[in-house]
Design a protein around this nucleic acid. Sequence first.
DNA 1: GCTTGACTTCAAGTTGACTTGAAGTAGTAG
DNA 2: CTACTACTTCAAGTCAACTTGAAGTCAAGC
Lengths: 154, 154
Amino acid sequence: MLDISELSRKSDVPASKLRYYEEVGLIRSVGRKGLRRVFDDSVLPRLALIALGQAAGFSLAEIRDMLGEERRPRIDRDMLSDKADALDRHIQELSALRDGLRHAASCTAPSHLECPTFQRLMRIALARQGTRERSRDKARMTGKTGERRRGDGA
Amino acid sequence: MLDISELSRKSDVPASKLRYYEEVGLIRSVGRKGLRRVFDDSVLPRLALIALGQAAGFSLAEIRDMLGEERRPRIDRDMLSDKADALDRHIQELSALRDGLRHAASCTAPSHLECPTFQRLMRIALARQGTRERSRDKARMTGKTGERRRGDGA
DNA sequence: GCTTGACTTCAAGTTGACTTGAAGTAGTAG
DNA sequence: CTACTACTTCAAGTCAACTTGAAGTCAAGC
């Protein structure tokens, strides 16, 4: 059982962020001690997963969907699998980009836009990109942030 | 030689975005025909690189640094190499996340936060994360958007 | 030579993910 | 019991990366 500052210290996540995450339903406190939130240890791994999901380029809404709403542990395995596939494609692209950068760093061609190796690597990366057909347009998601939108009253 | 709508069509990038990219110095038009911008074909691969860079999680400012300011093709090879290394670490994390998702999708444990395999995968991912020590705090960059900041006058 | 419509500029709006600040409250140390 | 301080809420601010809208311009077709 942790209060917000202990959780903040242990997770290296600012308290304001923790409150925000609770507000949008990414984490939950197990109760209050007076006014103060009380968290339990299970939010630590959860916060780590959130950070990881963000690093993977998922929005908080997507991450919330992936993790489930804390007390609904049964999460959609097909969706998870789809996310994994999408992530894998993303990884392929990034790998191509990494190789491109790596090559550009060592290549002695006058301008690497003219270097055939670089061009080939980029073609590979871009071909993949075309394959996905703007899949990130669908990532915008239809709000569904539960509560929220209070900061726009007046 | 393309006008903005042709470029938009060929690149599948909205004209507003192209103007924005020009404004912030990511691309350049070769001139004007009357008021209208004229681009040459070299911006097409450049736009593709920009998209790729974004997919890799770089900010537009970082991408601009990586690509150079169009007429300064000599770009810093050490920096490129550092970016490649950073990207590679990122890829490792994403791979761990992908494996975690993949496993979660097929795992029959009651809740995969309790599944030992999942926990192990996450530990690996998180260990890596600790290694980087908040490197993304440095990614904020010191503005340096050249011109810009006009839309916030009053 | 006038209308049309795709371009232009510039300001302002939007979205996601937060942070900051003011004003209030409550467990704890003295 | 009072003070202190770390918490609380809520509104508003910020930042990147764009988009939207209003008002203007200009080459082309009729």
